[in-house]
């Protein structure tokens, strides 16, 4: 900064001064608006929500602090506990299935097969849909009177039943199915990129060392994909915790509130039931969950990288 100002003082041509200024300030000018937006709309509203979660706000925000009343109410609420239980089921199954199928698809696609580009696009396409579309499509597919159950019964299997979507204990698993269908292809693309980065001669060396294809994958290639696992895990974890639109479109949280997730819980309480305070408290709990999962992982991974 100092030197450029000194340069400007030494060379006074009038037009040049403005151009120099713009040149040095350009990065700041470009980044300024997004920075301001992020500060206000992300961090500002996070703080606002945090504040609201310590108030008795119902239909409209109120700003007098009342302590942890809303959090106590939240954890006395059965529906919140169901949402948390569902999140645990959905999160672990969704992440697990996505990682396993994604890795499997990537490994199969990595065998130098024909039409790989076409197949890759086929598996990636679900990612291009919004969760609303996915949810709606799967609502029809899973509808007992309309989708799979109806189809199989028409084929002659009269007693076939597949009615998870309308069964209270099972509806959360339909969310898992639809979510995994949408995101596996993306995880596959991540893994495929990772597999392509593995040095060919490492695989040759392992072959010469006497390892079969299964051993080569389990002992050498998959362990070297550790950073990819890490990125996939972070992306999937935050998709799982924030998951809202998929549940809304697929089950609407139903039957009853059996497939509620924290995000739908937050929406219902903050905007339908006029309990902004309680909704804000649940939103804060979601934020803390994300932070609790991601921060230690980031820390562990960066520390590992520093050690080399």
């Amino acid at each position: 900064m100092n030197s450029s100002r000194a340069d400007a003082a030494l060379s006074p041509p009038p037009g040049k001064k403005l151009r120099d200024y713009v040149e040095t300030a350009l990065p700041k000018i470009v980044l300024g608006p997004t920075l301001a937006c992020a500060l206000v709309f992300v961090y500002g509203f996070v703080l606002w929500t945090a504040w609201l979660s310590f108030t008795e706000s119902r239909l409209l925000p109120r700003y007098d602090l009342v302590g942890f009343i809303q959090y106590v109410a939240l954890f006395e609420n059965d529906r919140w506990w169901i949402a948390l239980k569902n999140l645990a089921i959905f999160g672990s199954l969704f992440i697990g299935i996505c990682l396993v199928t994604g890795l499997l698809l990537a490994i199969l696609l990595d065998q130098r097969i024909r039409a790989e580009g076409f197949l890759r696009a086929v598996y990636l396409y679900p990612m291009a849909l919004s969760f609303i579309v996915t949810g709606t499509a799967w609502r029809w597919i899973l509808n007992p009177g309309l989708g799979i159950e109806h189809l199989v019964r028409q084929l002659g299997f009269e007693t076939f039943t597949f009615d998870w979507i309308v069964t209270p204990g099972m509806s959360i698993y339909t969310v898992v199915i639809a979510g995994a269908w949408q995101s596996s292809g993306f995880v596959m693309a991540l893994f495929l990129a990772g597999l392509r980065g593995v040095d060919d001669s490492i695989i040759k060396a392992a072959q010469v060392d006497g390892a079969g294809p299964v051993r080569i994958y389990t002992r050498i290639i998959i362990p070297s994909l550790r950073p990819v696992f890490f990125s996939a895990l972070i992306i999937l974890a935050h998709i799982a915790i924030k998951s809202f639109d998929l549940v809304m479109a697929l089950t609407g949280g139903g039957p009853g509130f059996s497939s509620d997730l924290p995000a739908t819980f937050m929406y219902v309480f903050a905007f339908n039931r006029n309990q902004i305070g309680l909704g804000a408290a649940s939103a804060m709990m979601m934020l803390l969950t994300v932070v609790a999962i991601i921060v230690p992982m980031m820390y562990a991974e960066t520390r590992r990288q520093h050690r080399g």
Binding site: D199, I202, A205, I220
Partner: peptide, 9 residues
């Protein structure tokens, strides 16, 4: 191998 091909993990 030229690139050593050591197992990185």
């Amino acid at each position: 191998f030229q690139s050593y091909a050591l197992y990185p993990n």
